[in-house]
Design a protein around this nucleic acid. Structure first.
Length: 487
RNA sequence: GCUCCUUUCGUCUAGAGGCCCAGGACAUAGCCCUCUCAAGGCUGUAACACGGGUUCGAAUCCCGUAAGGAGCGCCA
């Protein structure tokens, strides 16, 4: 069931765990999200976080957060802050204290020393340059670029000599020469890797800091993490982590490797292909619930129909419904969820959502009224500006096609409309009845020119509530301009 | 180069040998509703990468090929 259990079996020549594909995750799982603060959250990261959260929350488990900042040169606290903000914005909360790897040096040192004492790891004095040269020549010779084992069997004297040369050693894990590592991936089923295919890898860098493979495993074990859903790029490195866990006598979590999210052309998400960060999506006005619903269905086949809240998604989330193949990000799909999310907003929430895009100085009642009328025709706050102009500002001059339509209706029509508005005010039903009676027009022939004259557009929200917002006086002014009585 | 992962409508996916001449959602086309748009309802177009097997029968199992992706880092 747990990765290192079957790994141990395989290492010592035992039979593999029975090949039950799609092993179930523990009943009450402890999951985690462990970003490195070297950039902002994007769709892929966010989905990983979401899935781990969903799995934990759906089964009364725990969801932990860990900041993997072992790369001191690339990590920045401001990124960590933003990641936290993004998670909160999505609605993902975490249990307990956030573990920060840069504060765990002492624990790492202890475990590392244990591995070295047990002969499971050894100091390596090769320089980055030497490693690189070795890699290149192996690649050129058509061989896998693996650590050559130069420092594997050094005796004390040889080590002292290299130290004397001023070389700062790394600590490498001694991968067994033979045997294999087997585990059952939550998504991809049974996996088997030959130890011979795995080169000795670095556990501790020359500067003394712990490397990813190591700190990641140790932290998961120390935090009691039982299930890890992570990107598929980690799949073929999982054996290394299982080996470390086994050497340390730790229980490794069950791993599930999520297929990658790719761009529309199937290539990995890149900046060019619209790999928007969560912050960008948030700032353009995407609603978190829209994002969450879209992400839920990228790489997971949902029972859930329609827009669901996080709790409902958590109840239906199931690791056995995780999809193996990569998913392409389709903006149209996100937009569809965004529209649904906008429709589902309460009036107060809609006001809150649109507030940054509203004209300054509106009193609360006017703002709410405006939002109530236009919100069903919007997908993003940026679209508010056009309606602000219609309701509070000046109409742009009509385009040729629109001008033609206005000319077709004729000055007399707009004169009659202005009269009707003067007589009936904002009672739109009475106004249109009067215009119909005066001009003989009805249906589209009546409404199209009116809508165009009043809003400058051929489509939009219902005119009845719109006319209240525009106010009869301003509406009359717009009509007068088109009537024969215009000055 | 070696190892690993993946391949069903344009997109997300259902499908674990007969229930599938392949279902749903988004997108798209048309119709209804409607002054318009949005929303809603109805209908349509559209897919099992390719080639071999196994089987009475394969989208589903096996082998191969092709294509895409990942890993082999003192990056995570």
């Amino acid at each position: 069931m747990y990765g290192n259990f079957s790994a141990v079996l395989a290492l010592y020549g035992g039979s593999m765990a029975s090949p039950q594909a799609g092993a179930a995750a523990p009943v009450t799982p402890t999951t985690r999200f462990a970003p490195s603060p070297t950039g902002e959250l994007h769709l892929g990261n966010a989905r990983t976080a979401l899935f781990n959260w969903l799995l934990a929350r759906g089964r009364s488990g725990r969801f932990l957060l860990r900041i993997e900042d072992t790369d001191a040169t690339r990590s920045r606290t401001e990124f960590a802050t933003r990641i936290l903000d993004d998670l909160r914005w999505l609605g993902l909360d975490w249990d307990g204290d956030i573990v920060v790897q840069s504060a765990r040096g002492a624990d790492y040192a202890t475990a590392l020393a244990k591995l070295e004492a047990a002969g499971r790891a050894y100091p390596c004095y090769c320089t980055p340059l030497e490693i690189e040269v070795s890699r290149r020549s192996q690649l050129a010779a058509g061989r896998p670029p693996r650590y050559a084992g130069t420092c594997r069997e050094l005796d004390a004297q040889q080590r002292a000599a290299r130290l004397a040369e001023g070389r700062q050693p790394t600590l490498r894990f001694r991968v067994p020469d033979r045997g294999r590592v087997a585990f059952t991936d939550l998504v991809h089923g049974d996996q088997v890797f030959e130890c011979a295919d795995i080169g000795d890898f670095v556990l501790r860098r020359a500067d003394g800091s712990a490397a990813f493979f190591f700190s990641n495993v140790l932290d998961d074990a120390d935090s009691g993490v039982t299930v890890v859903l992570r990107g598929e790029d980690h799949l073929s490195n999982t054996p290394r982590q299982l080996l470390i866990a086994e050497a340390l006598g730790l229980r490794a979590p069950a791993y599930g490797h999520l297929s990658l999210i790719t761009g529309a052309d199937g290539s990995p998400l890149s900046k060019r292909l619209g790999a928007k960060t969560l912050r960008e999506l948030r700032e353009t006005g995407y609603l978190p619930i829209a994002l969450v619903n879209h992400l839920y269905r990228l790489g997971h086949s949902g029972e859930a129909e329609g827009l669901q809240d996080l709790d409902a998604l958590a109840r239906s989330f199931d690791t056995t419904r995780l999809v193996r193949s990569p998913a392409r990000f389709d903006p149209a799909q996100l937009e569809s969820w965004q529209k649904a999310a906008v429709q589902a907003l309460t009036p107060a929430a809609a006001l809150e959502w649109l507030r940054p895009a509203l004209p300054a100085g509106l009193d609360p009642a006017a703002a709410q009224g405006f939002v109530d009328v236009i919100r069903h025709n919007l997908m993003l706050p940026a679209e508010v500006a056009a309606w602000s102009a219609v309701v509070f500002g000046e109409l742009p001059p009509p385009a040729p096609a629109e001008a033609a339509l206005l000319a077709e209706a004729g000055p007399a029509f707009f004169g009659a409309a202005a009269d009707a508005l003067r007589a009936h005010g904002a009672d739109w039903k009475a106004v249109t009845a009067a215009v119909a009676a005066a001009t003989g027009r009805k249906g589209p022939a009546l409404f199209k020119p009116l809508r165009l004259a009043l809003t400058g557009q051929l489509q939009g929200p219902e005119l009845a509530p719109l006319i209240v917002l525009i106010t009869p006086a301003r509406a009359i002014a717009r009509l007068e301009r088109l009537s024969s009585r215009a000055p």
